[in-house]
Computed example of a mutant assay.
Amino acid sequence: MPRPLSVQLYSVRNQLAADRDGTLARLAGMGFGAVEPFDVLTDPQGLRSRLDDLGLAVSGVHVRQLVDPGHDPDRVLDAVALLGATDAIVPAGIPHEDFTGRDGLARAAALLNRLSARAAERGLRLGYHNHWWEIEPRLGGLHAIEVLADLLDPAVFLEIDTYWAAVGGAEVPGLLRRLGDRVRALHIKDGPGVKGEPNVAVGGGTMPVPEILAAAPDAWRIVEFDACAGDPFAELAASRAYVSALEAA
């Protein structure tokens, strides 16, 4: 059975803050079958209960807190498990400069490998999610994220943000093919492809979405907006319709 299309809840962060339960119900009503939470420490039990009521799966959880020394990693991982997720994904928090040279990449990989072993004790998998700064630096002709992948324990997977990869200068389908089965999840988004500009509905910008999906056929698809040029619910609905039509073709 194919995995349901997911949405990163950061896309509707303001709406969640105002009305969590209503926002989740609205996403379920659009046809999304899964969500990717980003605030794992705020009421994980209540969130799971609401998701269960709506029939929404959890595709994974963003856990920047794992690399924040102000948070207890065990508490963070326990919250991920409480949500019923299997994938804990670090979306940022490692210094940008660590991706500009091999010593920094070795430090980043060592940190992620340690966290992966800790996650595995709870039956969880650890992943890493890119922005532009893991793509833009090149070492020996490779994007920094590719060098990092070679240094990571095979248990650590990648969630490739396809839009940020393009902004960082990657030819995204080719990057996905080179990374192969290290890529377990994709953030699908669209826009003008430049820093500082808002996202638009998937299919309405510059991203070669059909080619991207074809390059990583087994990766979980998660729609996300960092910032949205229009009404986020309308743009998410349009994105869901577009991606679903491509997958059905």
Rank of each mutant, 00 (worst) to 15 (best):
residue 1 M to H: 15
residue 2 P to Y: 03
residue 12 V to W: 00
residue 13 R to C: 07
residue 16 L to V: 02
residue 17 A to Y: 08
residue 17 A to Q: 14
residue 20 R to L: 11
residue 23 T to A: 10
residue 23 T to M: 06
residue 24 L to D: 05
residue 25 A to M: 07
residue 25 A to S: 14
residue 27 L to V: 02
residue 31 G to V: 03
residue 31 G to H: 01
residue 33 G to D: 08
residue 35 V to Y: 00
residue 40 V to L: 11
residue 41 L to Q: 10
residue 45 Q to N: 13
residue 46 G to A: 03
residue 47 L to W: 00
residue 49 S to R: 15
residue 52 D to I: 07
residue 54 L to G: 14
residue 56 L to S: 07
residue 57 A to H: 08
residue 57 A to V: 09
residue 59 S to C: 13
residue 62 H to Q: 10
residue 63 V to D: 11
residue 64 R to P: 10
residue 67 V to C: 11
residue 67 V to L: 07
residue 70 G to D: 15
residue 72 D to P: 04
residue 77 L to C: 12
residue 84 G to Q: 07
residue 87 D to T: 04
residue 92 A to F: 13
residue 97 E to R: 15
residue 97 E to A: 14
residue 97 E to M: 09
residue 98 D to Q: 10
residue 101 G to S: 14
residue 109 A to E: 02
residue 121 E to N: 13
residue 124 L to F: 04
residue 125 R to F: 05
residue 126 L to I: 04
residue 129 H to F: 01
residue 130 N to A: 08
residue 131 H to A: 09
residue 133 W to F: 14
residue 134 E to T: 05
residue 135 I to E: 00
residue 144 A to G: 12
residue 146 E to I: 08
residue 147 V to A: 07
residue 152 L to S: 05
residue 156 V to F: 02
residue 156 V to S: 07
residue 159 E to P: 06
residue 161 D to P: 06
residue 163 Y to W: 05
residue 164 W to H: 12
residue 174 G to Y: 08
residue 177 R to K: 15
residue 178 R to W: 00
residue 185 A to P: 04
residue 196 G to M: 06
residue 198 P to R: 06
residue 200 V to D: 01
residue 202 V to E: 06
residue 205 G to R: 03
residue 208 P to L: 09
residue 215 A to C: 09
residue 216 A to Y: 00
residue 218 D to A: 13
residue 223 V to S: 05
residue 227 A to N: 15
residue 228 C to R: 04
residue 229 A to D: 11
residue 229 A to Y: 01
residue 234 A to Y: 02
residue 238 A to Q: 10
residue 241 A to Q: 13
residue 242 Y to N: 13
residue 244 S to Y: 09
residue 244 S to W: 04
residue 245 A to H: 02
residue 246 L to K: 06
